[in-house]
Nucleic acid binder design. Structure first.
Lengths: 245, 245
DNA sequence: TCAAAAGTGTTCCGAATACACCCATGC
DNA sequence: GCATGGGTGTATTCGGAACACTTTTGA
């Protein structure tokens, strides 16, 4: 990475009598809202801060971006650090840059949300987290910084995205039943669906592959297992005009 | 804005043997893709760079964020500066932070897109633009930096948003005909619509107010004028489950 | 009277909805 | 047997697509 200056920038700075350092003085962080689906509820993974400011407050996991690190790499690093998982679904949704959002100075944070399966993560104690845990999205504690606002935006982004793209599968194990899938959508969208119609709709898309496997050890008729077919999804034509999703 | 340090940050830095300055060394800019609708086509406003790097290349208008300035304020400042307009539709869509995206160093840019009506702007020459002009989105020149990528993302964000929320009206004058509205959607979505069905669908939403006015001096039956009713829109219940917009 | 665009009505079809009903398993 | 969830079929309704048609203006 070069330290030479962009003539455009220097020109601008001298025109406006501004010292150079003021313009490369931003702190940059990534915050990652990690969603999970457990006990038929949508959950988020939060950490409890181990230091001031906001010591002992719950917060969205995040970290400063390293100077030579891409934003996505930063988000993946946080996920790896916290859950031990790699190659999981992660997506940027909004950047928060209010001047007063961080008491230490101008720190702009890029918000990501991530979807992980079940509880198969490694909770890792760290220097910046005294505790870590899953919270129901319907019952969240007060959060540090502007994290409540970031959380709201993340949940809205998830709800919006889940309606138009088949990302919900990232919250389920690779093999799942249709009623598990329905429960997931009901939890995310806070909405009940009719079982027969849900089946028809999902199966009608052709993006689910029925497996030759069924549930084991259940006190009722065992359900057939399915898996999501990403290839078939991509080979579909889409997007009618709806205007009001 | 305080210059005191976040103990979390300093702790982290000392733990990792990293100098403080490395973490507040980010440059931050805002790039604003300005869309317009003219001659039945979707256009964007570009500037021609007056300085290196990428001198004389076309680029998305943007600027460094001032230290005490919110991101949205920055976007609005750029719009005001370039078009003379205030209070116009603007929305953040994505943040671009590849380490090598700017030759001068680590500059992260927050992408916004904006919708303006017709050509009622004041093209302003400036120290960082040698020229300025509208380009058809279907026929764009090579752009400076990673701006082609940013432009693609902006167009996709607009297409996605225009399907689910009534933002298209920001590209039209306050009073418009249904066929003008239809032409706008056709240009943005690259798709033809059936006139009778389009009318029924739009009118059926109840978000358009018919005015007691018609077109003047047209060589055919003059069309009724309508305006968009934001209040009525907000008082609507929405969102069925579509999964495939 | 003709061109051009505005505006309406009707038919058809497929998807979404609302149900009623049967099936397989563990206890 | 019976409780529990798995799974299917059908009738109805609603909205979208296709398209034929009439109306109003300027030239």
């Amino acid at each position: 990475m070069s330290n030479s200056l962009d003539p455009t920038i220097t020109h601008y700075l001298s025109e406006n009598n501004l010292p150079f350092k003021d313009f490369f003085q931003f702190g940059l962080s990534v915050d990652c809202v990690i969603f999970g689906y457990q006990q038929k509820s949508l959950k988020v993974l939060l950490i409890q801060r181990g230091a001031e400011p906001f010591q002992s407050k719950w917060a969205i996991p995040g970290d400063l971006v390293n100077p030579g690190e891409d934003l996505n790499a930063s988000a993946n690093r946080i996920l790896k650090h916290l859950t031990g998982l790699e190659n999981i679904f992660v997506e940027q949704f909004h950047t928060f840059g209010k001047t007063d959002r961080h008491p230490a100075g101008r720190v702009v944070t890029v918000g990501y949300f991530s979807l992980v399966r079940g509880e198969n993560y490694q909770p890792v104690a760290s220097n910046w987290a005294s505790d870590i845990g899953w919270f129901d999205v319907e019952d969240l504690p007060d959060l540090a910084f502007d994290h409540s606002q970031i959380m709201d935006a993340a949940i809205n982004a998830l709800r919006k995205k889940v309606r138009t793209e088949p990302i919900g599968f990232n919250l389920l194990p690779p093999k799942f039943t249709l009623l598990e899938l329905q429960g997931l959508y009901e939890a995310v969208l806070r909405q009940k669906f009719d079982k027969p119609n849900f089946r028809k709709k999902i199966l009608g898309t052709g993006i689910l592959i029925p497996l030759d496997e069924v549930q084991q050890n259940v006190a009722h008729r065992p359900a057939k297992l399915f898996r999501f077919d990403l290839e078939r999804y991509h080979s579909l034509g889409r997007e009618p005009f709806s205007f009001e999703l």
